[in-house]
C-alpha cells in the first residue's frame, strides 16, 4: 500500500506525481485515523455495553428502548452475582485449570520440541507431522469415547483430568511454535557446551532452557488465555461445583431451567470479572503474544 511509503525518506530517483505530496499525505493520514476509529468502535462497542450493563440499576437494564448510559452507577449486580453463584470457587477452579493446563502443555511441548528440533532420529519427521496434524481432529468428534475412558480412569470431575485433556489439546500448536523457535537458536552454543564436557541434562537445563525461556513464557500466556476461555471440556467433564470453571458457571446462568429467563445483570457482572485477568495478560504481554501467535501460524 502506498501509505507505507508516505512518511519514509523519498528516494531522489522517485518521480513525484502531479498531485502535491502534502495533500496526498494529508488524505492518507485522515483515512488512516478514520479507519482506526471505525476499528476501535467495532472492537470496543460490545465491551462498553457489557460494562455499562453490569453497573446499571436493574430496572433501567430492562427498559424498552434500551438505555445507553446508566443514570447512576451501582454494583448491585456484582453483589447479587456473589450471592447467587459460587463465584469465588469458580474463579479459583478456572485459575487452577488454566494454570495447570498451560504449565503442563508448555513443559511437555518444550521437551518434545527440543527432541524434534535438535535430535536426529529415524521417524522424527513422522512423529512431528502426526503431532501437528492431530490438531485437525475435532475435539468434539471424539467426545464419547473420551468420556468413557475418563470415567473408567476416574478422571471425570477432577482437576487433573481436565488439565490432562486441555493441555493435550494445546500441545500441537505449542510444539509447532517452540520447534520453529528452537531451530533459530544456533546449535553451536550447545556444541560448545558438549565440548566443555556438559551432559545432555546439563545442556538442556543450563544452556537451552535459558535461551528458550521467553518462548516458553509466551506460550504459557497464550495457552493460559485459551484454557481460561475453554467451555466444552469443563462443560462435559466437570459437573461438581468443586471443579466447575467460570465459563461453565456463566453458561449455567442461561439454562432454560434456571430461575432467571434473562439474567443479564448477573451475566454482565460475571463477564466483566472473567475478562479482567485476560485483559491484564494482554496489556502485560501483548508484544510477546502477537509474536507467538504469528510464529505458530506462519511457520
Amino acid at each position: 500500500m502506498t501509505t507505507q511509503t508516505a512518511t519514509r525518506p523519498q528516494l531522489p530517483l522517485v518521480v513525484q506525481t502531479r498531485r502535491s505530496k502534502w495533500l496526498g499525505q494529508y488524505v492518507q493520514t485522515v483515512l488512516m485515523y478514520l479507519s482506526f476509529a471505525i476499528f476501535v468502535f467495532i472492537v470496543c462497542a460490545p465491551f462498553y455495553f457489557i460494562l455499562v450493563s453490569s453497573v446499571m440499576p436493574k430496572d433501567e437494564l430492562f427498559e424498552v428502548p434500551p438505555n445507553y448510559w446508566p443514570s447512576e452507577v451501582t454494583f448491585e449486580s456484582y453483589s447479587q452475582m456473589a450471592e447467587g453463584v459460587p463465584f469465588v470457587a469458580y474463579f479459583r477452579n478456572s485459575l487452577v485449570f488454566a494454570t495447570g493446563s498451560s504449565a503442563l502443555s508448555v513443559i511437555a511441548a518444550g521437551m518434545a520440541a527440543y527432541a524434534l528440533a535438535r535430535i536426529r532420529f529415524p521417524g522424527s519427521n513422522v512423529i512431528y507431522i502426526a503431532l501437528i496434524l492431530s490438531v485437525a481432529l475435532p475435539q468434539i468428534a471424539v467426545l464419547v469415547p473420551m468420556f468413557q475412558t475418563f470415567q473408567a480412569a476416574r478422571l471425570v470431575n477432577t482437576h487433573h483430568g481436565l488439565i490432562i485433556m486441555m493441555s493435550s489439546l494445546m500441545l500441537p500448536f505449542t510444539i509447532m511454535t517452540l520447534v520453529s523457535f528452537i531451530k533459530q537458536i544456533p546449535a553451536e552454543i550447545e556444541e560448545a557446551a558438549y565440548i566443555d564436557g556438559a551432559n545432555t541434562l546439563q545442556i538442556i537445563l543450563r544452556v537451552v532452557l535459558p535461551l528458550i525461556r521467553p518462548a516458553l513464557f509466551t506460550m504459557f500466556l497464550i495457552n493460559f488465555i485459551i484454557s481460561w476461555n475453554e467451555l466444552l471440556y469443563p462443560l462435559v467433564f466437570a459437573h461438581h461445583e468443586s471443579v466447575k470453571t467460570l465459563s461453565v458457571g456463566l453458561t449455567e446462568l442461561t439454562d432454560p431451567g434456571s430461575t432467571y429467563t434473562k439474567p443479564w445483570d448477573m451475566m454482565s457482572a460475571m463477564s466483566v470479572t472473567m475478562i479482567i485477568p485476560v485483559l491484564l495478560i494482554i496489556l502485560f504481554g501483548q508484544r510477546m503474544i502477537i509474536a507467538g501467535l504469528a510464529r505458530g501460524a506462519v511457520k
Binding site: 481460561w228 465459563s247 453458561t251 485476560v278
Partner: peptide, 11 residues
C-alpha cells in the same frame, strides 16, 4: 486487535 481473540467465546 488481540482483545476479540482473547475474550472468552462464552462472553
Amino acid at each position: 486487535s488481540l482483545i476479540p481473540w482473547a475474550i472468552p467465546m462464552v462472553i
